[in-house]
Amino acid sequence: MRIGILAFERVQLLDVAGPADVFAEAARQLADPQAYSVEVIGTQAGVLRSSCGLGLAVDATFSTHPGGLDTLLVAGSPRIEAVEADAQLHDWLRAQAGSVRRIGSVCNGAFVLAGAGLLDGRRAATHWNAVARLAARHPRANVEPDAIYVKDGNLYTSAGVSAGMDLALAMVEEDHGRELALGVARELVMFLKRPGGQSQFSAYLAAQTAARSNIRQVQDHVLAHLDADLSVPRLAAHAGMSERNFARVFRAETGMTPAEFVEQARIDEARRLMQGSALPLKRLAANIGYANTDAFRRAFLRRLGVGPSEYRTQWGEAARRPPAASSPA
């Protein structure tokens, strides 16, 4: 199937190359070069200069492209404002939206789709640093601030930069099943599902921000021992600090209390487990350190605004997996 990626001057190169490599690796593992054929569609002909300075050859421009795409993705850019208001481009995107099976964006390429009216009344994701701006400029879009990628009907949008690879991998799984997607993820040294689930802001990322080594060690300890006693007295002892000083330094280093970090880490793991298994909630809660399911439900609802059962219905493996792992129509 033909995959088009819309690019332009100062495009973020990984927004194009990342998904392209996922699709190419899937085609290689299928032993079918035509399983996925990626085309770079430019706003102008020739070689585009990416945001990192490398050149990107264009296969066709949007005004000369013959059509017939299965999937169209709009890449992002640190200078997305240069194309987000292009009326001719918007007309073309609206026409494509009516003919392709899937249309979507990587990173702040969502602004281009929004400018064409394609996000109106739809759920969408973008780079965390652009969420507020997208929501303010396009209030009819339902912007989800903490998602790696979002599927709403035939509209697929992803968070920043490398999340475009997560989106492409999800499309491969949708088209050909989990086994191929897992094979691609292994070959490209990716997670089939990131630690922390579908969140841009997981405890696994937060654990990289502390400057003091003893605070990072505590965070690593938490992530590795979610079913243990992770009270402030125990964590302070692990850090070799008094409880009061530990709590003060931890908050100064991470922007959250130790209890908030522990809860975030446990709920991140719960999300990951619910997306990849049918583990009963009682057993799942025990595995991540909750004494009972009521405490787990309260924490899950407090952190995400939705209960674990509802979350599993939306994001669980059964909900995300196609009925059968077969070739696309």
Rank of each mutant, 00 (worst) to 15 (best):
F250D: 14
G55W: 06
G46E: 10
W128K: 11
V38E: 05
E253F: 08
L235G: 06
L119A: 04
P195C: 09
Q217T: 10
I288V: 15
G196D: 12
Q217Y: 06
A291D: 13
F296W: 12
R321V: 03
V143P: 01
F23A: 08
V222P: 08
E263D: 11
Y290G: 11
A130V: 07
G42S: 07
A286S: 15
N129Q: 13
V172G: 00
T126M: 03
Q314F: 12
A168Y: 01
E84V: 03
V150W: 07
T209M: 12
S158F: 04
H221C: 03
Q29Y: 00
T61P: 05
A286F: 12
A136W: 00
R194L: 14
D120K: 04
R234W: 09
H221P: 03
R234D: 11
A31R: 10
V83L: 00
P78V: 03
S162R: 05
R248C: 09
D70L: 05
N129K: 13
T254C: 15
C107G: 04
A97E: 10
Q275Y: 09
A20V: 05
R303C: 15
A291H: 09
A295E: 14
K282D: 14
D21F: 00
G197R: 11
R94M: 05
R94E: 10
R272G: 13
S50Q: 02
L180D: 00
A236T: 10
I267F: 12
E81G: 08
H225I: 07
E317Y: 11
A26K: 00
T209C: 09
V262P: 14
G196C: 13
W92Q: 03
T126S: 06
A110W: 04
V16D: 01
M274N: 08
D86R: 08
D120F: 01
R194V: 10
P33M: 10
M1Y: 02
P308M: 13
S51K: 00
P323Q: 06
S213Y: 07
R283E: 15
E174F: 02
L56Q: 02
L169T: 01
F191R: 02
D166M: 03
A207E: 13
T313K: 14
A228F: 07
L223A: 07
A295D: 15
R49L: 13
G68A: 09
E269A: 15
W92S: 05
I3V: 15
R2F: 04
R297P: 10
V232H: 02
I267E: 10
E187Y: 00
L54T: 05
L226R: 11
T126D: 03
S99N: 09
Q96R: 11
A24R: 03
A124Q: 06
W128T: 08
H221Q: 09
R123L: 13
A132W: 05
